[in-house]
Design a binder for these strands. Structure first.
Lengths: 225, 225
DNA sequence: CATAAAAGAATGAACGTTCATTCTCAGCCG
DNA sequence: CGGCTGAGAATGAACGTTCATTCTTTTATG
């Protein structure tokens, strides 16, 4: 992410912007995109509203930057996955970690907000779509590495399960709002569905007559318990 | 909503309120809860803002009423399901109809909005939770009818798959926003997962030693193709 | 080193707009 | 007339954004 052409090191303003994004995220989680005013954002960032505009020209720009920064972070995560020795297995682990609430509870509110805002703001929708396309592309890359197919071929064959897994992860992330639900049980069932979908992809590795579909019903999860 | 004790027939004001809810829904879909102003709502309802307040005391009240009216409508749908000869099969059909985009595209934006608003408004969260609890209770009722268990027992055994199915339906409903996704394929996969979960419930009909878990991997969907 | 000049960072009051809500008043039916 | 329904202007608060201004740091100069 750092660079393609110019190896610039982060300036003071860049650091400040990152800090602003981090604290603005908290305000957005608490009050929503519309609920959090610019004065709120400036206050939680520990600066005046006037100065705030030196870093971001508008409210929409903050949201956009926040989404794109998340996308960049995810690029980083996926880089670790794709370069590992067993990409698909590592992908499973990362998904498992993401779905289990600790880390994603923070993001859950934000995702709901982004989902809703995307319907009315083309800018936010564009940022969100960019992120989604990146995730799907990374899924496809992992699937291609796992099966030995080319990216193009993997894309043709596996775009549906990739999207399916993506949707399931999102569904699991948005779970924390409903008190009467047995969240842990639902999470487990969702993870099982994801594992099954990934098993189907993995089963494509060898020539069709050599696929061992027997362990299809046995998700290998040493980390789950 | 109407009442339990007095069978009142809808007054003029009730009719007007219903019309307002219908047109307000359109405005909310287009602009979002925060984006649509009271002036907007009054205008699309064909009346002045002052008069508008004679029917709903606040914006939150409109949203709340809208959700509760949807919940009441759904109660009606479920009444048809539970009284049919094969409740579970009819439930499958209704779910299938709901997930296939025609009818739910309208609701999709609204659901995203409600999800987000629930995080910040306790009133909306309460209405949303009420609706969700009702749906789950109806699922359980269908499961109980199908398996012959008591409601209490069905609730103990099947609350997890009920919640799971609910979450999947919601996930499928919120699908329309993402252009690069192959929506039809994902919808099919989600429906397959739902069918599998319902198959597991249905498999509980007979005594435990007679359950045939073999057809678990074979979803019977003549309507899918 | 001292100091003046320039640049950058930060402030909070002020602007115009929009919002949810309230108020005042006009018509209408008995 | 009196009690409704309805209209739309009025209100004050809050919003996103801008602005003139003040602090702080850096740089140049003697």
């Amino acid at each position: 992410m750092q660079l393609a052409t110019v190896p610039r090191l982060p300036s003071h303003a860049d650091i400040r912007s990152a800090e602003i994004l981090a604290s603005a995220r908290l305000a957005f989680v608490e009050k929503g995109f519309d609920g959090a005013s610019m004065q709120d954002l400036a206050r939680v960032s520990g600066m005046s509203v006037g100065n705030f505009y030196r870093y971001f020209p508008s409210k929409a720009a903050i949201i956009q930057a926040m989404i794109l920064r998340d996308a960049a972070e995810m690029q980083h995560d996926f880089a670790a996955i794709i370069t590992s020795s067993q990409p698909l297995m590592m992908l499973r682990q990362v998904i498992r970690g993401r779905v289990n609430d600790e880390s994603c509870a923070k993001d859950s509110d934000l995702w709901a907000e982004i989902e809703a805002a995307s319907r009315h703001s083309p800018e936010i929708a564009a940022a969100s779509d960019t992120m989604q396309a990146q995730v799907l592309a990374h899924f496809i890359a992992v699937f291609a590495a796992e099966t030995g197919l080319t990216i193009a071929e993997a894309n043709r064959r596996f775009s549906a399960p990739a999207a399916y897994v993506f949707v399931l992860i999102k569904a699991a992330s948005c779970l924390s709002c409903a008190p009467p639900l047995d969240q842990a049980a639902v999470r487990t069932m969702i993870l099982r569905s994801i594992d099954l979908a990934l098993d189907e992809v993995a089963a494509f590795t060898a020539p069709p007559e050599l696929t061992m579909s027997s362990d299809l019903t046995e998700p290998k999860d040493p980390t789950c318990a």
